[in-house]
Amino acid sequence: VGAPVGEEPVSGLVRAFVTNGRQGINYHRGVWHHPVLTIEKRDDFLVVDRSGTGNNCDEHFFKEEERLVLAPHQ
């Protein structure tokens, strides 16, 4: 689940992607994204992150009225 780069994520621009389970994903710097999700009861992930000083995580909490419901793409 991700949204374009910006000061804050825009709820109308959030998109979810489904992979085949054998794909990797690489986010560009500044892209808003949710931690990795799974629809399976149990799954394994390998996360490679950057090292170094500085803030590596900005959190954003949507307001209750901004609840996101992701509909399947037709």
Rank of each mutant, 00 (worst) to 15 (best):
residue 28 H to L: 13
residue 60 H to P: 06
residue 62 F to Q: 02
residue 56 N to M: 08
residue 13 L to N: 11
residue 70 L to H: 04
residue 11 S to A: 14
residue 2 G to E: 01
residue 50 R to W: 04
residue 5 V to W: 04
residue 69 V to Y: 10
residue 57 C to M: 09
residue 46 L to H: 11
residue 14 V to P: 01
residue 5 V to N: 06
residue 35 P to I: 07
residue 9 P to L: 02
residue 27 Y to C: 08
residue 1 V to A: 03
residue 36 V to P: 00
residue 5 V to Y: 06
residue 30 G to S: 13
residue 64 E to M: 08
residue 37 L to S: 11
residue 24 G to H: 01
residue 56 N to Y: 08
residue 20 N to Y: 01
residue 34 H to Q: 15
residue 42 R to A: 15
residue 49 D to E: 13
residue 59 E to W: 09
residue 16 A to P: 00
residue 24 G to L: 03
residue 59 E to H: 09
residue 59 E to L: 11
residue 48 V to S: 07
residue 50 R to D: 12
residue 62 F to L: 06
residue 10 V to Y: 04
residue 71 A to K: 10
residue 29 R to F: 14
residue 20 N to I: 02
residue 68 L to I: 15
residue 7 E to N: 12
residue 37 L to D: 10
residue 13 L to T: 09
residue 54 G to H: 01
residue 47 V to G: 06
residue 4 P to I: 03
residue 53 T to Q: 06
residue 49 D to Q: 09
residue 23 Q to V: 02
residue 4 P to A: 05
residue 51 S to L: 13
residue 37 L to A: 13
residue 3 A to Y: 02
residue 67 R to D: 11
residue 54 G to Y: 04
residue 25 I to G: 01
residue 55 N to K: 09
residue 14 V to M: 10
residue 43 D to C: 13
residue 9 P to G: 03
residue 30 G to D: 14
residue 10 V to A: 11
residue 7 E to L: 08
residue 13 L to C: 07
residue 46 L to A: 12
residue 17 F to A: 07
residue 34 H to E: 15
residue 60 H to M: 09
residue 9 P to Y: 01
residue 26 N to G: 00
residue 50 R to F: 05
residue 49 D to M: 10
residue 50 R to G: 12
residue 28 H to F: 11
residue 43 D to I: 04
residue 61 F to H: 12
residue 1 V to D: 03
residue 53 T to S: 10
residue 56 N to I: 06
residue 39 I to M: 15
residue 1 V to S: 00
